[in-house]
Design a protein around this nucleic acid. Structure first.
Lengths: 214, 214
DNA sequence: GCCGTTCCGATGCGAGCGCATCGGAACGTA
DNA sequence: TACGTTCCGATGCGCTCGCATCGGAACGGC
């Protein structure tokens, strides 16, 4: 066998270049030539890895989705000892992409989301990333509600003596997960366009989470 | 004076054409030629109205923002007799753009939001639309909280006897407005990419509003 | 009726795009 | 070492883009 290259890692390398360019100039600023230049490979190499530009974009989107999902998972195993409620807060903070180092990722994500609204292939890829994310959040919320129902309230300020079980029955974990996911995406968007500052968004998110249990 | 045309109405006509095209193929599918064809004018006419493409896009964005803001305002004056709480619900439903006839508007909006993340001019225009919207929601929430504090709870199911005043003090209207705005935008986005169905989003929104007062 | 002004449709230009093509470099195998 | 296979960098093609240009149509004032 003659020269052989690692296609997988090269595809990832190219996907990273796509991300950098999309972060700077939006998806419209992503051209095969610029991608090749940014990835330090030739255009021919890019064309070998991806038959068309769309194939490249779809792969990149999947790549980002995987990375974000992985980050949430990593964050969850990093803090397993604490309550499900705090774990939920950590996970939500993780996907809100508010920290400066993830701002670029958020911009790229937003660019793809907009494109997915008019491109079914991208939309499918995007949904494939959202589904497990929502699943994870649903589970976390259910666990947190169970924990709250089982023990007394740990951080509540008011003297409400009602059993948590009642509240757990009132909270629909799936609906709450959807709410949280949509809220986080909306906050991220508003930060990106400068309508909210990161601390303001953080404050909103924190308040929402706090109300979930209070 | 020789031939004179109504520039204002022509600009609006062109803006509508931009919206139609952006709805179908995203902002990338908006070219001067296609816009001219869709608006049934020549390319020269488009170039006369807008010196550059960007100027056209900025105007279009402002146009949409104005239209949405106007719709909210119209909805509010149409149902003034009811409580501030229901008015809030109506306004939120209005900007969530979930109804089929507004889905196109939502897609265009999303396309512009994504572009605004990498284009300061668009971002400024966008913020100019969000600011009064948030202002309106802040006011509505404050009024609703006041009304709740003044009278007894009207729809609460639990037998909680706490005075509403305490709760009103706990609710920060501005923060709630930010939350609601972000949630609505997130829900709209998730509907557009097919992650949620309109009824699901409607359900989430309704539950969130209900919890605001309960 | 001629003129001055405003408008616009058609056309051209340079640039940049995605994609196809191909000659040769690189490298394991015999 | 000679060969066969895999890879890739360079180049070209056809196309579309935003924008500039310009000749003439439309129309009120003199």
């Amino acid at each position: 066998m003659p020269k052989q290259v690692d296609h997988v890692s090269r595809r990832r390398l190219i996907a990273e270049a796509v991300c950098h360019l999309a972060d700077e100039h939006g998806l419209e600023g992503v051209t095969l030539r610029d991608v090749a230049a940014r990835a330090q490979v030739s255009m021919g190499a890019v064309q070998r890895c991806f038959r068309t530009k769309e194939e490249m974009l779809v792969f990149t989107l999947g790549h980002i989705g995987e990375r974000i999902g992985e980050r949430v998972r990593a964050r969850l195993v990093r803090s397993p000892a604490q309550s499900a409620g705090t774990a939920l807060g950590h996970a939500a903070t993780e996907i809100s992409l508010l920290r400066e180092e993830h701002r670029a990722e958020a911009r790229v994500w937003l660019a793809f989301v907009a494109q997915a609204a008019v491109n079914e292939t991208l939309a499918t890829t995007l949904r494939a990333s959202y589904a497990p994310l929502q699943e994870t959040f649903t589970r976390l919320i259910a666990e947190a509600a169970d924990a709250e129902a089982g023990s007394g309230s740990d951080a509540g300020a008011d003297g409400d003596g009602d059993a948590g079980a009642d509240r757990a029955a009132l909270v629909d974990p799936r609906r709450e997960a959807r709410t949280l996911l949509a809220l986080v995406d909306g906050l991220t968007t508003h930060v990106l366009i400068g309508h909210l500052t990161p601390p303001e968004a953080q404050d909103v998110l924190h308040a929402h989470l706090a109300r979930l249990w209070a």
